[in-house]
Amino acid sequence: MSVNKLGKFAVIGLSAAWIAGCSTTATETDTSTVAEDANSTEQANDTADNTDQSFGAGEDGALTSVIVEETVAVDDSNMDMLAGVETVFYFDFDKSIVRPESREALAKHAEYLISHPDARVVLEGHADERGTREYNMALGERRAKAIARYLTIQGVAPSQIETVSFGEEVPVAFGHDSEAWQLNRRVEVRYE
């Protein structure tokens, strides 16, 4: 058997072993661990009056998974600083340049982020439906990074900023005219 054939068999064998290892089912240990975690999570959420949880049951009503929505305790007095400040910033067709009318609101976001070094922001870039999906993903990323650059120039730490692009995939307006396209060319600011 040649070395080349032996290498191919090794790759196929390792791939099969990896796939088989990934397709395991839950054991009693897994279920009990999840149930213990669910009980402690449920007790913690009961004290906080939070009911944002879902449970799934397996055979015999056994608990198999828990999905808990994390809620971050936000001090409302800290967010008062951003009351009424725009969180959506619009762009011209095929451009990723921050508009002058957006600068005042972005300065307030920067001021908030500088005064709250633990705060994190996600900048979600979007594009309208014109252009290819790949181009619109790149355009959405350029738009989000333009806002990020503006914030870092104002003094915000880059570690507080995350950028993501949705391209044309998450429109807010579903029309096929200039008004709808304008609403979809945007960056949304979301605090974590």
Rank of each mutant, 00 (worst) to 15 (best):
G58R: 04
R143N: 08
G21V: 00
V121R: 01
D52F: 03
D76I: 10
T87D: 15
E28R: 04
S159D: 12
A180L: 02
E86Y: 01
R99W: 01
E168Q: 15
S2G: 12
D49M: 05
M79P: 00
M81G: 00
Q182E: 13
A127M: 10
T71N: 12
W18V: 14
R190N: 10
L14T: 15
A17R: 00
T27M: 01
T29Q: 12
E188I: 09
L183P: 04
I12S: 02
D46E: 07
T64D: 14
S65T: 15
N45L: 15
D94L: 14
Q43N: 09
T33G: 14
S96R: 04
F174Y: 10
T51Q: 11
V11N: 07
M81P: 00
L123C: 07
S40R: 11
L106S: 08
I153M: 07
V72Y: 03
H116E: 11
T29R: 06
M79Y: 07
G56R: 11
L106Y: 05
L82Q: 07
S2L: 00
E124Q: 15
M1F: 05
Y135R: 11
A119L: 06
P171V: 07
I153V: 13
G131T: 06
P158V: 03
A48E: 03
L123G: 08
H109N: 09
A110C: 02
T25N: 06
A107W: 00
A44Q: 08
T132I: 06
Q160H: 04
T33H: 01
A180P: 07
V34Q: 03
A16L: 12
S40I: 11
D37G: 02
A16T: 14
E36L: 11
E141R: 14
Q53M: 13
S65C: 07
S15R: 04
G56N: 09
T87Q: 10
A127P: 04
E168A: 13
V88W: 00
A16Q: 03
D118M: 08
H176R: 13
A105G: 08
R149S: 14
D49N: 11
V189Q: 02
R130E: 13
T31F: 05
S178K: 07
Q43W: 02
Y112G: 01
P100A: 14
G125A: 03
D30G: 03
K5Y: 05
I12F: 05
Q160A: 09
E28T: 12
I147P: 11
S115A: 15
A127I: 03
F89R: 08
A62P: 00
T29K: 08
F166T: 05
R185Q: 14
A157G: 02
I147E: 08
T41H: 04
A73H: 03
G155F: 05
L123D: 10
E42D: 02
A20M: 09
A138G: 08
A144H: 01
G155R: 06
A83G: 08
R186M: 05
V72R: 04
G7N: 11
S32Q: 10
N136C: 11
A48W: 00
Q53H: 03
V34R: 06
A146Q: 06
V66L: 15
K108M: 09
L139C: 04
A148L: 04
N39Q: 13
T152A: 11
N39E: 03
N45M: 15
E169I: 10
E169S: 15
S32N: 13
